[in-house]
Design a protein around this nucleic acid. Structure first.
Lengths: 168, 168
DNA sequence: TATTGTTATACTCTATAACTATA
DNA sequence: TATAGTTATAGAGTATAACAATA
């Protein structure tokens, strides 16, 4: 979200010698995704992340904060502030978890559900704009591949570099 | 790089009602990519971004800082510090641009080239680990789709939400 | 002893503006 | 006037550690 314009595949771009296009492409796409979804979800606090949390609250049956944090890759201390502002806006509520009195179940409010429903349409537009270079079947493909690749990141915790700090 | 473990596709995940999996998948993949490449490029300053800059310096014929910044989506003020530390480490040099005395061409040094060559192998490993859930042909597919989608983000500047702030 | 959630602090990024030297 | 590069400052975002309540 810096004042710069993405400038891909410019005239002077040669063949990619090394393995960088993955990181470059992911970065460019995620930056644009964040900017577009932030605009689409301008009604929400916390921009695109507020939207992601709300979607997750709806899709999972009411999760607790730790689950939300783990699933979205957000620190649990940050999740506290995130939920705070969503509660202030009346989009979600913290309810006690009858099975674990330490935990709070985060449930969507009627207002929250309506808001997300409206925003979903705008986000869908934003996302198809983001993938404008691909035709519909390719978008499906990309979505599927991304989800599978990302979904595969669970079980190699003991092997990779992140593990060390992730475990701590 | 928070002390959290990604926790995708957990037991309680239902069908995705809305359009969030794209943002979720991109975020998870990019976070892991950054962590793994940072480990793979531990010799470099500035982690995965130092690597990205070096790769770009090699792939483009010596670019100036503004070009690098635009292409990688990094603010030009940040690029100054980035290049500073790469110069300190002897990986690149700032040379005057004969065609524009304001600009500095960033050229890779012999040491820089050797270093990147070594790291490339580790990064390639890191990336195939990242995409372990996909078979080789699917990885190719994903790479291609990501590059095309990201490459398509150039010409809609006057239409989308980012434009406003990108233009400024 | 481990975990959920909260708070406070410090640190790291990033954004903004101002300045120079060129064009 | 606009652009390339630099620098300084402020702000947003993030990590770390400590704590209370519960498991």
């Amino acid at each position: 979200m810096s004042g710069t314009t993405v400038h891909p595949t410019p005239a002077r771009r040669e063949k990619a010698t090394g393995p960088s296009p993955l990181g470059w492409g992911l970065t460019a796409l995620l930056r644009e995704w964040g900017a577009r979804v932030k605009a689409a979800a301008a009604d929400l606090p916390q921009g695109s992340r507020g939207y992601q949390v709300l979607r997750e609250v709806i899709d999972s049956q009411p999760p607790n904060q730790a689950t939300l944090a783990a699933r979205l890759g957000i620190d649990r201390t940050v999740m506290t502030y995130l939920i705070d502002s969503l509660v202030e806006s009346g989009l979600v509520e913290r309810t006690p978890d009858p099975l674990d009195r330490r935990a709070r179940r985060i449930v969507i409010t009627e207002h929250g559900r309506n808001t997300v429903n409206e925003i979903d349409a705008h986000v869908a537009e934003a996302e198809s704009g983001l993938l404008a270079a691909l035709d519909p079947s390719e978008r499906e493909q990309l979505l599927g591949l991304i989800e599978r690749a990302a979904g595969g990141l669970v079980h190699d915790d003991e092997r990779c570099a992140t593990a060390a700090r992730a475990i701590d």
